[in-house]
């Protein structure tokens, strides 16, 4: 291919149609390709999924079923912990993945090369979260499969419970992703916020009661109050009611959880989008799109 042939190629007429969906699929495709480049990591992740479920199975053998049933969550600790363990990876993905990915793009210098293309940066940022979502999906399916089919955890899976679970799950993603947008916007500017987001996710996971019933917090009112400030608490409560207690509509507790999550989403999503926009605008004003 010589210079003249190259020039001829660039004389071609081209009609471009701007498609956000095509751009989003490109970002997701690239993220997944990069993820698959780490083959050993994938294998290790699948193994650790299996190992964590087995670990909770054995922990469950030590938990007094009576104490668990007094909290109102049935008698199987494995079933109780399974819902928390399966969904907590999504909590981490929502809260930390975007800020982590943006920092990675800034350090790699690739954020700048993306930012000068006609891509809508919000589309790009959404695409960046895909990797975390996919890994979490593998983890969620893996945990439920091993827990239910391998270790006999008794969870209620029927069309109605599945539908309510999906509603709660989607609201959990939206509300927590909004918190992730806020974190990403702030970290983009201050660069060094990763430990803070890590602490936020860990505290959130702890306070939402991934591994213990929240009824235990009654002895610590301040901590119990704090736990109510996080959307994941309501999502977990609702999902457990559906999957463990077979709650069906119209269950007041589940409805309350859905309404609270919807309110969280309605408030947090605009704040998250604004914070992200502010962060991106600020690094463009400060000229730090490739500084870390």
């Amino acid at each position: 291919m010589n210079r003249l042939e190259i020039l001829q190629l660039f004389r071609d007429e081209e009609r471009r149609s701007k498609s956000g969906l095509r751009q989003l699929s490109a970002v997701v495709w690239a993220q997944l390709k990069m993820m698959l480049a780490y083959k050993s990591w994938l294998v290790m992740d699948l193994l650790s999924t299996f190992a964590s479920v087995v670990m909770y199975y054995f922990v469950g053998l030590q938990v007094d079923p009576l104490r668990l049933s007094q909290s109102g969550w049935g008698t199987s600790y494995l079933a109780f912990s399974l819902v928390g363990v399966a969904t907590s990876n999504y909590l981490w993905a929502c809260l930390t993945r975007l800020s982590h990915s943006i920092q990675h793009e800034i350090r790699g210098g690739t954020l700048e090369t993306i930012a000068v293309t006609p891509v809508n940066m919000l589309v790009f940022f959404i695409g960046l979260t895909a990797r975390g979502y996919l890994v979490s999906l593998i983890y969620l399916v893996g945990v439920f499969t091993v827990g239910v089919y391998g270790l006999g955890a008794n969870l209620s899976f029927n069309p109605q419970s599945f539908l309510i679970f999906i509603v709660l799950f989607m609201l959990m993603l939206v509300s927590n992703q909004a918190l992730g947008l806020i974190a990403a916007g702030i970290i983009m500017v201050y660069k060094r916020g990763d430990p803070l987001v890590f602490i936020l996710a860990a505290v959130n996971e702890f306070l939402a009661g991934v591994l213990y019933p929240l009824e235990l917090l009654k002895r610590f009112p301040a901590v119990q109050f704090l736990s109510m400030l996080f959307p994941y608490t309501y999502a977990l409560d609702g999902m457990r009611r559906v999957l463990i207690l077979s709650a069906s509509m119209p269950d007041v507790n589940v409805l309350t959880d859905i309404v609270v999550l919807a309110v969280f989403s309605l408030i947090l999503v605009p704040i998250g989008l604004k914070t992200l926009e502010w962060g991106y605008g600020r690094i463009r004003r400060e000229g730090t799109t490739s500084s870390y």
Binding site: E14, R15, R16, S17, K18, S19, R22, Q23, S25, A26, V27, W29, A30, K33, M34, A37, Y38, G108, G109, T110, E112, T113, I114, T117, P118, V119, S290
Partner: peptide
Amino acid sequence: ETGGRALYWRLSARDNLRFYAYLQNIP
């Protein structure tokens, strides 16, 4: 000046170009 830093190192050269072509809406 980035000396090649601003590429996706975990993608091939062809995939890097393909990715940017998608972002630029090139048919």
